[in-house]
Design a protein around this nucleic acid. Structure first.
Length: 293
DNA sequence: AAAAAAACCAACCGCATGCAA
DNA sequence: TTTGCATGCGGTTGGTTTTTT
């Protein structure tokens, strides 16, 4: 409320533009260990020349464990359309009904695809919705982890949407983790076996290859479900030295100058149990590497 | 094959909001 | 109540990729 706004950071001293792999890893490693209770302080503590805002955005939109990447399914698009009709440009609200999707991503999809697609028939849909710029309460919610739509084909079809209970994408405050480990519920939503063919997993390969020196790992990372199976995991990883995995984060942190020696506990484990709980329940592709610690 | 146009999407900007002192 | 800080949010930009001419 009306107050002078201090600049969030000294723009001359922070890096801007696309994130490098190293920056991503620094951010991931730091949040893994410490969570992100203070975005403003985080860049400094993590050794990043970024503004806290930028770190937050990068984490939320790209790096966090439950983020789902790739094409939107027709069901998701339908949901967005309906929610947008009801909520307007409340992207974060809309995102809260779509596990794994970010407000930024939804906004992009809307602006680049859905808006145009709707335009031709906008008159009808808008007219029917003018009275109906439905308030939120009109959205039926359920805890059922599905959204269902009346399957038939016509564009005039009546679509009834059962929408997921909104979830909190801003998950990793420790309190939130205790109360609603959303990653666990969304992890099943991330079942990549059901993903559209075109779905692109984020390019972890480049990210980790530098550190692990092997490309096979990316087959695993691209099929996160394989993490659940020790058999698959070990067979894919091959005879690789377990020690290497155990020391991965430690090495990484040393490499990145995160001061692993005093910050790691004796077992080289992630210290924050809530973080462990969160990441364990997630299908986040980075987890299997880090969890070997 | 090259140039131009369109599409895509990550990241930035700055206001709004909540909270604590 | 006021003030200042931290973060959330939505609009916008600009670089990159893809498609069209």
């Amino acid at each position: 409320m009306g107050k002078g706004r201090a600049p969030c950071c000294d723009k001359s001293k922070v890096k801007r533009g696309p994130w490098s792999q190293e920056e991503d890893l620094k951010l991931i490693a730091f949040i893994h260990k410490n969570g992100h209770e203070n975005w403003r302080a985080l860049p400094k503590l993590a050794g990043l020349l970024r503004c806290g805002k930028s770190c937050r955005l990068r984490w939320i939109n790209y790096l966090r464990p439950d983020v789902k990447r790739g094409n939107f399914t027709p069901e998701e698009e339908e949901t967005i359309i309906k929610l947008h009709e009801a909520l307007g440009n409340k992207w974060s609200k809309i995102a809260s009904y779509l596990p794994g999707r970010t407000d930024n991503e939804i906004k992009n999809v809307w602006n680049t695809h859905l808006k145009k697609r709707l335009k031709p028939k906008s008159s009808s849909s808008l007219s029917s919705s003018s009275s109906s710029i439905a308030d939120e309460s009109s959205i039926s919610t359920t805890t059922a982890p599905t959204l269902s739509s009346d399957s038939s084909s016509s564009s005039e079809k009546q679509v009834s949407i059962i929408i997921n209970e909104p979830i909190d994408h801003e998950m990793i405050t420790k309190e939130d983790q205790k109360e609603s480990p959303i990653a666990s519920s969304s992890s099943t939503d991330h079942d990549h076996s059901s993903k559209p063919e075109q779905e692109q997993i984020m390019d972890h390969s480049a990210l980790f290859a530098d550190y692990l020196g092997q490309d096979d790992i990316w087959n695993i990372l691209d099929n996160p479900e394989s993490f659940q199976s020790n058999d698959v995991k070990t067979s894919n990883v091959g005879e690789e030295d377990e020690e290497q995995k155990k020391n991965w984060l430690h090495d990484l942190e040393n490499e990145l100058g995160l001061g692993g020696t005093e910050e790691l506990n004796q077992n080289n484990t992630i210290e924050d149990p809530n973080m462990v709980e969160l990441f364990e329940s997630s299908s986040w592709p980075f987890w299997s590497e880090i969890s070997g610690l």
